[in-house]
Design a protein around this nucleic acid. Structure first.
Lengths: 193, 193
DNA sequence: CCTACCGATCGGTAGG
DNA sequence: CCTACCGATCGGTAGG
């Protein structure tokens, strides 16, 4: 299977949690190994390097999000539908794998070249997808002639912000968060009329 | 003076830039020293430790922001005025010292106890100030009965998001950014009528 | 998956 | 602000 062996998935899972708690740089391969009750050297049978782990977390999330936004822009035709589904997908993907999402958003810059540039390219493609949604709204005379880049980045930081406070065991469910955020963003962009 | 000697301010300035570029953990005291053309050991005449540098950056920004939001809640009486001035202050403080702002927002968790807890307390006080603004709007029947905590955190991530793309040499000035963000947030929270 | 190990580098101190 | 230095720890490899 694509996700690798059981052991490999365990390594990724433990690493995500540690990278989230202490940051990538501060987490040591010794800590990861200890949580798995194996020797540090044994990790290297499953991953090429510490950065390899970060790489798989970051690109895994990036691919999920890109797939989702491409689907939105393929299927929906009006801005309202596009925005609603985009926010719903985005919140769903982040909350579904919160540790990975936090690492993806906060630790990607510790990737080294050439993967760093490849990652930045994927992120730009996502922003481009967001701009397409905003452009649809402008064409429909629903949105202000807002600077599309400004709008895309503002939407992104608004939805990504949930990772700092979302708690799976809390009473605010992903679907409700997505609904609130959609309303907030839609109203914020909407032309007054 | 409060900011310390010239040399100390140079150390903070160089550290802010390096912490922003590479993250706190990945930056070494040797790199900081090299940029100042001194030996690593010489840094310790001006700061107690590497963490001491991070401490001063994080608490410096926190104090500026707290002072500003307290002023807003003291002076302005209606939600529109409060929100407008809060966004303006917040964007102004972040953009005025962008490197420090980025470190403040992204690296504070590398503080160790007991300073870490003190920092978190300051951040909670700021969120409390934001909730006070939202409450004012609810009392005036301008805002939806939005969950105040959700609203405060969403506002925060929306305004903080600018640090990821703001460029001092760009054509979008802090005042314009603040105006756009204010409109976005105000409309997003506003009751439809 | 383990034992045994390595070169590099880390933050920081002593003493001037 | 420098010279000289230290104990600790890092990511990773060889070889089984």
């Amino acid at each position: 299977m694509l996700a690798g062996t059981d052991r490999k998935r365990e390594i990724l899972s433990v690493s995500q949690r540690l990278f989230k708690e202490k940051g990538y740089s501060t987490t040591t391969v010794r800590e990861i190994a200890r949580e798995l009750n194996i020797e540090p050297a044994s990790l290297y049978s499953h991953v090429h390097s510490k950065e390899d782990i970060l790489d798989q977390i970051c690109f895994g999330m990036a691919e999920k999000l890109l797939l989702a936004i491409d689907e939105v822009n393929d299927i929906y035709f009006d801005a309202e539908g596009k925005l609603r589904m985009m926010v719903d997908n985005h919140v769903g993907i982040l909350t579904d794998d919160l540790n990975a999402a936090i690492v993806f958003i906060k630790e990607w810059r510790h990737l080294s070249e050439p993967r760093l540039s490849e990652f930045v390219r994927l992120r730009k493609r996502y922003e481009q997808g967001l701009r397409e949604i905003i452009q649809t709204g402008i064409d429909e005379h629903k949105f202000n002639e807002i600077d599309k880049k400004f709008g895309a980045l503002t939407i992104l930081s608004t939805v990504n912000g949930i990772i700092d406070w979302y708690k799976p065991e809390g009473n605010l469910k992903p679907k409700e968060i997505a609904d609130s955020l959609y309303t907030f963003i839609w109203s914020g962009l909407r032309l007054d009329n």
